[in-house]
Design a binder for these strands. Structure first.
Lengths: 144, 144
DNA sequence: ATATAAAAAGACCTACATGTCTTTTTATAA
DNA sequence: TTATAAAAAGACATGTAGGTCTTTTTATAT
């Protein structure tokens, strides 16, 4: 359902947060190696996330990516919105230009609750909560 | 969530079924006009659906698209599978190669029920049930 | 038989997501 | 103050979904 770019973004931010907790600021080379993503493309994705102010970065020796306020939770929704665009959760599943409760497509009534469940899930889950699961060994970031 | 190609496929099949009920076999020109999709591309999508045996066609004068056994319901799942590929409902939402209940990604537990709800929905809904909603004026096929 | 109207087929094109390479900028260590 | 290590930036390349055009095949009406 999500594009590869969004997958890289999520994995990268989770890794950055996990390293930040340890007092480190990883660079894109380290990040891409750890999350198994294309190096240069990952750098670009992180640049875009930095521009969208979802993560911070410092250039130069000892630089890297980090969260300015690690306690300020970043929902997956914010990441999806930044990468996939604002319409991701609003466009009609049947492809109609105008589709709402008043003028529904034949999928509308059944599709809406599914999309709503997805929406609520990504608004509940955060980069921090994903990282915590990994730290508690309840989940993994590795692709092996 | 679904690609444009799948949207065209669903709208086209619903239209074909609605015309079949009236004893007609619409061609791709008529279909694309009615569902507001690109003519030649719609022809291709319908050819692929015919190859996948989700719809039948006859060439030549008076030809067009139709369902061999209109009473045999076609789930949206079958259409999605044919257009998007078999992995659509199985690939990991976090991008991990191996991700299951035993070796979960940090999204897994929360993502699985959302995907399951989508899966059940598209297995319950059929081309016929969508068409019936339109015939009962409970929904519309038009993009206006 | 022939003309016609339709789908089938396949070459080609376009836009965008994905990915790579090179150069520039900048912060810090030495 | 110079060298270095890092991100930023942007040009370039590739892959794939989406879309168009032309030719071929075939069923049917005449």
């Amino acid at each position: 359902m999500l594009g590869k770019t969004t997958e890289y973004a999520l994995r990268a931010l989770v890794y950055v947060y996990m390293q930040n907790i340890k007092g480190k600021r990883p660079g894109y080379k380290e990040i891409s190696k750890e999350i198994d993503s294309p190096e240069q493309f990952t750098a670009k994705v992180l640049q875009n996330l930095a521009r969208a102010e979802l993560v911070s970065s410092v250039k130069g020796r000892g630089g890297g990516f980090f969260f300015d306020e690690p306690t300020n939770p970043i929902t997956l929704f914010k990441v999806i919105e930044a990468v996939e665009g604002k319409e991701y959760f609003s466009k009609c599943g049947f492809g109609l230009k105008r589709c709402d409760a008043n003028n529904p497509c034949p999928l509308h009534d059944n599709y809406a609750p599914v999309r709503e469940a997805f929406y609520e899930m990504v608004n509940k889950m955060t980069i921090q909560s994903l990282a915590n699961k990994i730290n508690k060994h309840e989940a993994t970031l590795s692709r092996i």
